[in-house]
Design a protein around this nucleic acid. Sequence first.
RNA 1: GGCAUCGUGGCCGAGUGGCUAGGCACAGCUCUGCAAAAGCUUGUACAGCGGUUCGAAUCCGCUCGAUGCCUCCA
Length: 494
Amino acid sequence: MAPLYQQHPIYVTNSLSGKKEELLPLKEGYLGMYVCGPTVYSNVHLGNCRTFLSFDMIFRYFRHLGYKVRYVRNITDAGHLENDADEGEDKIAKKAKLEQLEPMEVVQRYTVDFHQTLERLNFLPPSIEPTATGHIIEQIELIKEIIDAGYAYVQNGSVYFDVIKFNEDREYGKLSGRKLEDMIANTRELTAQSEKKAPQDFALWKKAEPQHIMRWPSPWGDGFPGWHLECTAMSTKYLGKQFDIHGGGMDLKFPHHECEIAQAEACNGETPVRYWLHANMLTLNGKKMSKSTGNNIYPNEIFNGSSPLLTRAYSPSVVRFFMLQAHYTSILDISESALQASEKGYLRLMDGLKRLETLDAGKNSDFDLKAWAANCYKAMGDDFNTPILIAHLFDGVKFVNQAQEGKMSLNASDLEEFKRLFKAFIFDVLGLLAPQQQSGNNKALDGAIQLLIDLRTQARGDRDFATSDRIRDELANLGVQLKDGKEGTTYSVE
RNA sequence: GGCAUCGUGGCCGAGUGGCUAGGCACAGCUCUGCAAAAGCUUGUACAGCGGUUCGAAUCCGCUCGAUGCCUCCA
């Protein structure tokens, strides 16, 4: 049988063209994807997670279709300058001083936090997770190439990218829709005298002041790499001079990704990325979450209910489901009422799945499984439209519920196929977990509740409603909901 | 100020020219010993103004409002 990816085309919104284009890999059956990872100088907040979640879902769908994917997501551990002025302080070094830690200790702490958080949200690990500090040599080599190509200049032990020179030969600003002339016209007066030739120029290598802790030797003296260089160095190393997909948060479009394009084009003469994908922001109170402004919410605060913005806890899968109910290119605002609505929807979906597992096959099929499956794939193929996919999944739930009431049925082979696809979309593609998978499967609890259900059924048979209602209500108080159906009683735990 | 995006019913959120996703909430009905769960049914939309079109939430213009980027940020 032909691989799934041959049957299900994917159209993606390419930020470079601003249009939806069919995704055609450089090499059939293979995909290279690079996503800008976090800067590990503080705990990862939920906004960060949304971007990585979007690409986790995309990665999962590629894999589901049978693509062999090399997914590279870096860890920025070399620190960035605090501002564009010459007297910058390394972000990580600053934090280290604050907490009396070695810079690499800071990096380690927050890298671990990052991994733990993503694991709770059921992320798949990327194929390669390279660090900036592990690729200093590659970055230095890249700078040499850019200098040799004539697009960079050395100044007092630092190296800068010559944007104006580059723009004479190529185009700077094509990703973000900016024109260099406009940028020059709009530049504010520089407060400090700069060693850069033009304000638009950006650092490839910065000279380290004596007090700067994070430093490496280079042909231009001791220093550290510029902000945009690591991604070019690592994406080139692991995916090649040209690769299929580059992703990241919308806020990185300019200048970060613009500079990546410039750096790569400066040494390779060809544009590095065929499809640029940008995930939109998660907002809180209508504003972007940000480490620096403090407008943010941390995943753990949601999972354990400690956030002052919430009245109780919400599970990682609910958070995941909430985010996947919006398209990844749309801004999404988080609120408790939105989380609550998502939680109910998520539980309904999971209930449907549980019922599907116990469904008996009928003689014939009243459900157009082929059309349903085609719609699911079409939704995902249309720029990974998970909200539409979820809508189709709810159509599936509706069918399952009707089937359980004996109103509809599926024949044996269709039922098996339906189960397989339904689970594939929920678990493999969306990456959700069943509620019991999150709290640890508990055989003792299940047995105990089953016993109570049996006792209640017996009491109801004896018309001893005082006893039966007591069992039902007391369990409800404990967060266990009993559901009477045609085929007997099931339960769900909050 | 420049560039870009967005403004959908009570709430969240899909939808790029005609056939009006989905979830949550609300109401009625069925089922039930009563409920819950489930099913069925119904309602309230496309910021405003103007234009293009036989026809616009969807295209164009203007106005108002919000957000992102222009300094690190997913």
